[in-house]
Design a binder for these strands. Structure first.
Lengths: 200, 200
DNA sequence: GTCTATAAATTGATAGAC
DNA sequence: GTCTATCAATTTATAGAC
C-alpha cells in the first residue's frame, strides 16, 4: 500500500460517497460531514483531497459523465433504433432508485442551474447535453436530417426526464414503466411514419 | 391599521417572499434570514407567524395550489382542446423566469421529494397532481376514455416538465418555445387520429 | 403584536501536531 | 499523508423586553 494508492483510493471513495449523497439528499442538503462519514474519512481530511465542496462536486459530475460514456460505449453493438430503446428503458434498470430520488443527472442539473453564476451550473449542463447529443447521433444514423434529429432528441430527453420527475413525485414504478413505454411507442411511430415518407 | 390586518399582511408577505426564494434559490438553500429580509420582517419575528420553516413551506405550497386553481378557472370560457393548448403555452408567459429558475412547481417537487418522510413531500406532490388531474379532465371532455385520458395527461405533463428542465439547463428560451410547440403538435395529432377513428 | 438579543447546533474551511 | 482540534460564520429557533 504505497501512498499514491491510498491517496487515489480515498479520493475515489469520497467521489463515490458524494455522488450517492448528492443524488439521495440533494447537493445543498448534503454536508461535508455526511460525505466524510460515508467515505470513512475524517472531516478535516476532505479538504486535503478536494480544496472545496465545489471542487468535489466537479469531480462528481466528471464521474457521472464518465459513467454515461461507458454506458453509451457498451451499447455500440446494437443498431441505432435499438440503442435509443435501450436509453429509454435505462431508468427501469434502477427503477427503485429513480422512484425514490429521481434522475441523478436531471435532479443535480435542476439544483445547480438555479445558481447561474456557479461554474457547477455549466458543468452540470454537460450531463443532459451528453444525453441529447448521443440521442441526436442515433437519430441522424436513422436517416433524420441533422436539425430535425436535434429537435427530436430534445423531445425524447425531455419526455424521459419528465417521466422520471413524475415517477419520483408519485413514488410509482408503474408510472415509470407505463410512461416510458409510451415514449418508446412515440419513437416507433416517428420511425414508421418516416419510412412511409421515404416509400412515397 | 388594526392588528388583524397587519398580522395578515405580514403573513402574506412572508409567504410571497418564501415562494419567490424557494423558486429562485431552492428550498434548502433559502434561509429564514433571506425570507425575513425580503419580506421586511425581523428574523426573530418569522416564528411568530410560522412556527417552523416547514410550516412556512406548507403555506407556500398551498399558495401555489391556489394560483393553479385560479389559472384553471380563468380558462373556463375556452373549449377543452384550447384549454390544453393554453396549459402547454403557459410557461411561455414567464419564459425568462422558467429559463433562469425552472418550473416553480416541478423544481420544488423534485427537491422536497428526496425526503420521503417529510410531510412536505406529500404536499408538494399535490401540485403536479393538480396539473395531471386537470389535464385528464380536459382529455375526458374531448372524448377519451378515463384510463387513456390519465395516461395521456401523464405524458403531456411529463413532456412540459421535461421541456422546462431542458430550457433551464441550457438557459434557452428558444428551446422552450420550440419544444412546447412540438408538444402542442403531438396533442393535435392525437386529437386528429382520434377523430379519424370515430369517423371509421 | 413586535422587536432585539441570543441560544444551541451545524456549516465549510483551516491550523498545526504527528 | 493523516489526523485532531478548532475557527468564523451561519443555521433554525427561543427568551424576554417593550
Amino acid at each position: 500500500m504505497n501512498p499514491a494508492y491510498d491517496s487515489a483510493g480515498k479520493r475515489k471513495e469520497l467521489v463515490r460517497a458524494a455522488k450517492e449523497l448528492f443524488h439521495h439528499e440533494g447537493f445543498h442538503k448534503t454536508t461535508l460531514q455526511m460525505i466524510a462519514r460515508s467515505a470513512g474519512v475524517p472531516l478535516g481530511n476532505v479538504h486535503y483531497y478536494f480544496p472545496s465542496k465545489q471542487s468535489l462536486a466537479e469531480a462528481v459530475i466528471a464521474s457521472h459523465l464518465s459513467d454515461l460514456q461507458t454506458a453509451f460505449a457498451s451499447w455500440e453493438s446494437e443498431g441505432p433504433l435499438e440503442r435509443l430503446r435501450t436509453l429509454i428503458r435505462s431508468p427501469l434498470r434502477s427503477a427503485d432508485s429513480v422512484v425514490q430520488f429521481g434522475c441523478p443527472h436531471g435532479s443535480l442539473c435542476q439544483e445547480l442551474q438555479k445558481d447561474a453564476e456557479s461554474p457547477l451550473a455549466r458543468a452540470g449542463a454537460g450531463l443532459l447535453q451528453a444525453w441529447i447529443d448521443w440521442s441526436a447521433e442515433q437519430l441522424t444514423a436513422l436517416g433524420w436530417e441533422a436539425s430535425v434529429a436535434r429537435q427530436m432528441a430534445g423531445q425524447l430527453v425531455a419526455a424521459i426526464q419528465g417521466t422520471m420527475l413524475l415517477a419520483q413525485t408519485f413514488r410509482s414504478p408503474e408510472l415509470l414503466t407505463d410512461q416510458l413505454g409510451r415514449v418508446e411507442s412515440w419513437l416507433e411511430e416517428q420511425q414508421s411514419s418516416s419510412a412511409e415518407r421515404r416509400k412515397a
